[in-house]
Design a protein around this nucleic acid. Sequence first.
DNA 1: TACTTTAATCGTAATATTGCAATGTATTAA
DNA 2: TTAATACATTGCAATATTACGATTAAAGTA
Lengths: 109, 109
Amino acid sequence: MGITKSEKFTEQQNQIANFAKAFGHPARVAILQHLFKINTCICGDLVEEIGLAQPTISQHLKELKNLGLIKGNIEGTKVCYCIHNENWTKMKLVMHEFLDQDILTTECC
Amino acid sequence: MGITKSEKFTEQQNQIANFAKAFGHPARVAILQHLFKINTCICGDLVEEIGLAQPTISQHLKELKNLGLIKGNIEGTKVCYCIHNENWTKMKLVMHEFLDQDILTTECC
DNA sequence: TACTTTAATCGTAATATTGCAATGTATTAA
DNA sequence: TTAATACATTGCAATATTACGATTAAAGTA
C-alpha cells in the first residue's frame, strides 16, 4: 500500500521519522551542509553546487522549508536561503534524545 | 525518475542519508526504541508491540539488520533481536557530526 | 512421523519519492 | 514596455517504499 500507518505510532515517533526523512536524501544533506558552510545567506547557487536540475533543488528546498529547518528571504529576483537556527536546535533535541538512548542501557548479546 | 543520484554526492553524505532513511519510518523508530527499552533480547513480540503484520515487521527488521544497527540470533523457532551496540555508536558519531555542525557557525539572518 | 510454532520470503497492490522539461511568476535591467 | 534573470510550479515518467496475504523453511512437540 506504500502508505505509512502513522496513527499506530506516537507523535514523538512520527516526529523523529519526519526529521529523519528530511535527512534521508543526500541532496538535502548536501544543501544543509552548504548552508552551514557558507554561513552568510547566499542565494541560489545551490543548483551549481549540488549538480541537480533547478526544479529538483527547488523541490528539496521546499521540503526543508516545510519542516522549518531552513528559511528563504526574497531579495530581488533571488531568494536567499539559510538555516533556521532556532528550529534546528529544537530538531537536535529530538534527534539527540533518540540517538543517545543507548546510554541508559547495557549490552545484552 | 525516483532514483537517487548517489554518485553526485560524497560517501559521507550518502552514509548520513542511509542512516537517516532507516529512521525515516516510525515503525523502525518504534522497533529500535523497544529493543532499547526491553534491553534483553526480545523476539517476535515486536509484531504485537508495533501492531503491523508479521511480514511487515520482518521487512523493517531486515532493513535495520542490513544497515548493521541490529543483530538477530536464532533461538529455536524464535529469533532474538537486539541493538548492535558497536555499530550504533559508530552511527551516532556520523549523525552527531552532521547535527552539530551548527555549533561552528554564527547566526546570519 | 505428523503437527505446531515462528519467522522469512514471495508476489502484488497502493502510494511516495525523485528528477526534469516545460511553463509560470515576479523582479530587475535596458 | 520589453527582455532577461531567478525561482517556483506543473505534469509526468521511473523507481522506491510500505503493507500484507499466501507460502515456505526450520525447529520444536506430540
